[in-house]
Design a binder for these strands. Structure first.
Lengths: 367, 367
DNA sequence: GTGAAAGCGCTAACAT
DNA sequence: ATGTTAGCGCTTTCAC
């Protein structure tokens, strides 16, 4: 049943040439007589030959595989306990128990609509090149070791890192080991690593301008986590613009990019500034929460309060009303990450590089 | 900068033993003197050695990698055109253009909250075993070839297949090539392949019983695609139960598991049966659509109309009101898929096997 | 332009 | 219990 896999040797015999020639044909090296080339191609076709990845990888030192890492900060496993073997994990909900997700982190991350767009962009770039990402989750120290180990043993050529927390140590670890990596968003503390990011400040500006253009003057904002560059910059852009319009003071409430925190922040703002008539919420998930809270409190959107979100994630459409939002071209950004990583792997680019994308205002019904 | 990677040889020298011994220690083979074992371990630690995956894979004929394939039916690329090379694609939106996702399929799939749960379950099983899934999308004939090719060249040991359409030819292709595979849900047409599935019929029953228990008598249902076993069975279970309660006739409207189709189906039902007071919607996404439509039409949920969804996906919580729904333990199911595949790969199980999971009613606010 | 041959780093007989 | 050795299937000099 398990037919011994075909080798170059078999194809070579079939075509009446040497292994080397078949190899050349497969790898598209010139210096091959067109006639012979066709004969070989036919032999490959006829036999259904598929080159062995491991063998090739062993000699080329390339895997043509990249890792897509969803990485969190040190949370659980960086606590006081240490010295355990690398495969042990301190999270009590860990393990392949009957409860499905081995930990809350993975479940949370994969449920985020943002994740789908990330994957979509990466796959969009990779697939036409016959490459496919290996998905890794790294929220603990042990998991991060797994990532570097994975790369060091040559299981992948490099890593695409999407961090969910500001203090993620993974980028620095990768750099320290000399492993090719590209991050989504500039790391909170400087690391000589390539990254792709959004012009967050410009995004905040777009939001402010739109709200202002709509005649709103009682403006407030629900910010993202202010220890994240993205959180700071979006706020800065928003503030800046209002300031230029003679509104130096803007009430703010900090959220952490979750729906619940958006609702809570909105509640605080509403309590302190009942006259508000426009709000910039630093991501769509929080905007959804804010929207619901506003409705509960009897304020209509956009009638009483105009709202601009950020990201243009799927919830922007799901939300009632559909959200006017600052679109982050996530798919293009993650595709660019893959392209950049590819260059680093191939050695056609060596210096850490950053690519900044421009946001775009998508006007729907909320403002 | 690029330090030549360490080899077994280096570690062996460092530890003063032979390559074979180091190999034994690493692979946990007995027959190693504990003292020597420790010396070797220390040498590994000291040198920071990481075994080369390709080299190992070449001899073991195992990759310790599995593919997670999100697969659609033949759609675009199975049209009249054919004979193109495998890397060509007919979808005009294909390619790494500036528009992000190389095709609508990937974008649609990855945006589905269901996808996150699938990944979460798979990763939950794999990660404690230091394995990581390779993500593949296969919605065209060419893409499916890529999948079988990927496995045939030994890039992965087997595939986990999640089909989004009834007539997906991939499972049959995999079986025909003798490649290890496990599917999510029973294939629409019989294929001798292992799969994990839900007792859909029991789920339909749960929904009916709950609605009945709530005193609702004007019951209708929005079904899933009726060419899918899941669609048929959920309906059958629902019908069955009502029939036993003396309600042989149930108005139905078919949807295709999208929010829009749910709203449309609900609209049809409402037009024909304005007196309805309870509805079973065959998935949460459609339920959300139905819910919104009901509200637009001035019917409150659950006041005027009680609603039970299916899946318990993230939208069940997002939905206003939060959905009472039939929970599908997706994470456990996909973890089981991975476990089953593992057995097939290791040869500890050879016959196609099916694992059926029981659904569970989650009562929230909509019914 | 093509073939012969030398490894890539590892595991698994087989010897010892 | 440990070392020696023969490949796994491929790419890549190096001759021709």
């Amino acid at each position: 049943m398990e037919r011994r896999s075909l080798t170059l040797e078999d194809v070579a015999r079939e075509a009446g040439v040497s292994r080397a020639t078949v190899s050349r044909v497969i790898n598209g090296v010139r210096n091959v007589d067109p006639a012979i080339r066709d004969v070989v191609r036919e032999a490959i076709e006829r036999t259904g030959y598929a080159p062995n990845r491991a063998a090739r990888s062993l000699v080329t030192r390339r895997t043509e595989t990249i890792a897509l890492v969803i990485s969190g900060a040190g949370e659980e496993s960086d606590g006081p306990a240490h010295g355990d073997g690398p495969s042990h994990d301190h999270d009590p909900s860990h393990g392949d128990g009957p409860d499905g997700p081995h930990n809350a982190f993975a479940a949370r991350v994969f449920a985020d609509p943002f994740f789908g767009r990330v994957v979509s962009g990466v796959v969009g770039f990779l697939r036409p090149r016959s490459m496919h990402p290996v998905l890794m989750v790294a929220e603990s120290a042990a998991a991060r070791k797994q990532v570097t180990g994975f790369l060091r043993q040559g299981s992948a050529d490099g890593a695409l890192v999407v961090s969910t927390h500001a203090e993620d140590p993974l980028p620095a670890m990768l750099v320290a080991e000399g492993l090719p990596a590209v991050c989504f968003a500039r790391p909170a503390r400087p690391v000589p690593v390539s990254y792709v990011d959004l012009a967050h400040r410009a995004g905040g500006r777009l939001a402010a301008e739109h709200l202002l253009a709509g005649g709103r003057r009682g403006l407030v904002t629900v910010t993202g986590p202010l220890d994240l560059p993205a959180g700071q910059e979006r706020l800065a852009g928003f503030r800046e613009t209002l300031e230029r319009s003679g509104m130096p003071y803007v009430p703010i409430a900090e959220g952490h990019f979750t729906r619940e925190s958006g609702a809570e922040a909105m509640a605080r703002l509403l309590a302190e500034h009942p006259a508000l008539d426009g709000v910039f919420v630093a991501n769509d998930l929080m905007a959804q929460g804010a929207c619901e809270l506003l409705r509960e409190r009897g304020r209509s959107v956009p009638g009483d309060v105009a709202m601009v979100g950020f990201d243009d994630s799927s919830v922007a459409l799901t939300c009632r009303p559909p959200l006017t939002t600052v679109r982050q071209p996530v798919e293009r950004m993650t595709a660019a990450m893959a392209a950049l990583l590819q260059e680093h792997v191939q050695g056609t680019r060596t210096e850490p590089t950053s690519l900044i994308f421009e946001p775009e205002l998508v006007v729907r019904d909320s403002a």
